[in-house]
Design a protein around this nucleic acid. Structure first.
Lengths: 182, 182, 182, 182
DNA sequence: AATGAATGAGTCTTCATTCAT
DNA sequence: CATGAATGAAGACTCATTCAT
């Protein structure tokens, strides 16, 4: 049941990239948090920091996809699904001390203007929109509206994730459902 | 009509902070872009990089406030005002190559978990919400709704500013008005 | 007719040491060029990089000895022998892109100030001089002159091997025979 | 009469590059030998190690040019000039412990396969040949022979500089004049 | 005999800042 | 006010080697 070195690195990197952003999070700091020696990183991530960031963001992307999927599965309306998602994110936020970025934003968009980063972020965002849209339709929404609402939800969540950092509170995230139909 | 050293620094810093984020934008790089010698910075910004960032963000905050004020002044409905604002931001985005952060996000939230940064960002965001809310009420909206719509607009714009980076396009910013009343 | 792991290592090391010099050629790089896994090296060369370099240089030394031996065997005068040798070396040079060191120079003298390296290089150089001198005498030259001419030939070849790197061309190597009797 | 930081760096780098070669000589080591702190290097040599190497080699190139110029000025024959040069180089060699490369070879050709390095080395070598040739002609030699003899002298000296490292002695450098007319 | 993981000292370079002029 | 030099901690990354399997 031991965590592998690779997993330790991804966990630590996820934590630090979302808390400080890609550029501000030092490799030394990550290695130390992971309890992994310097040289090991490049064995598992030959491309260094960028490689680690890409893996980290994808891992977080899948994690949030699962969270969304479960939220929608348990819901009987689109709004309920979004509410569950926002509450879950807000809870995580509260638990972590509220200096968080969205893991994708902090990790990939907080980094250098690197095309690989941009594409990876785009792919993750689009996968979220698609997932949301699918459930919106399943729950009875017309396609055009499902698309717009899903995209709006993404923007609101990303925007809230940003301003929550300034607020020092996750409250704004919990108000998103009301905004969606305002 | 020469730009002062101080202005040169703020312009260059604004540009680089919003393009790369606080941490990734080096002081050397900023000084060079500004065409200002190494030692000059600490005359004008004794607090160093954080000082410069704070001034820069406030400057950009005021700039956007003016932009919003004008947009609402020329409008006869809240939606029209938001539309003008989004188009203006999208135009700037296009002109700059679409790797931009919101200047406040990139400058203050892309930096270290510094309480002064957080508070300054909060103040700027709140001033925007207040400005928007005032105009919404002036244009006939009920207060509670004006508050929620203004806050939603902020989240949508900030969220769009983020995802536009991934999209490599400012289009999503132009779709915000439709989302506000979806 | 498969190459053994050991041979693969020596070939790859020969190539890289003479192209970049001992210090600049990384073990990882050599292992990769050889298509040999990380851990294998120390089975075949327990002394690590220095061991590999020593073997490599000796191997190259013998290779060049054979080349010289054949060249002199086919010749009817000392000058003809030297000409054949220089042309052969120049041809190799051309074929490899002209960034080459003499394999002994690059491998042993481009490394650390290690006494084992120095002595190995000395032994190889002396074996070449001896071979050349023997043939010079066999072809009718007086001993004292044979010794001086052989030593001069070595210096000219080593010097040319160096300056050819700067020239980006092997031409200077082909001009050596004319210099020997100038 | 203080040495400037820049000069300290060049002296230390010259010493270490010619003793160990570009790749094996560490920057830390050079900085320490120069008694200069880490960060200072990049103020004076913004291009880092390669910049330092280029300057260093050019400096050494000029130094040797002066040495050659003086040697020829004091001589009444080409052979005498070469003899003086070889003796001077051999003396330096002896004084330094005989692990030396030619400063150009060690610094520029012992480095990476960098076109700037190659060109700089070529320029220095050619300046030496030109200087030698000019004096050979002045001292009565026919042009074609002056060219060949000058080029031969360069190869012999460079070759001797290499093999002297293996010999652990500068004697071979002193034998060059005999080889030139052998 | 073979191998991929582990290791930490080492590489070069950049950082934000201070200082003397 | 202005400036270029100085500074050393920290940055990301590579090194040759050892180890457990």
């Amino acid at each position: 049941m031991e965590k592998t070195t690779r997993e330790k690195l991804i966990y630590a990197a996820t934590d630090l990239f979302r808390r400080k952003g890609y550029s501000a999070a030092g490799l030394t700091e990550i290695l130390q948090a992971a309890g992994v020696p310097k040289g090991s990183l490049y064995h598992h991530f030959p491309g260094g920091k960028p490689d680690l960031a890409l893996e980290t963001a994808r891992w977080a992307g899948r994690y949030l996809s699962r969270l969304m999927e479960e939220a929608f599965q348990e819901s009987t309306s689109f709004k309920e699904g979004v509410t569950r998602i926002c509450n879950a994110i807000a809870d995580i936020h509260d638990a972590r001390g509220a200096w968080d970025f969205c893991p994708v934003t902090g990790t990939l968009l907080g980094g250098p203007a690197d095309e690989r980063f941009r594409l990876a972020a785009l792919e993750i965002f689009e996968s979220w929109v698609k997932l949301s849209k699918t459930h919106a339709i399943r729950l009875g929404m017309a396609e055009a509206r499902a698309e717009l609402q899903s995209r709006a939800a993404l923007l609101l969540i990303e925007g809230a994730w940003i301003t929550a950092r300034a607020d020092g509170s996750a409250d704004i995230i919990r108000r998103i459902p009301d905004m969606l139909e305002a």
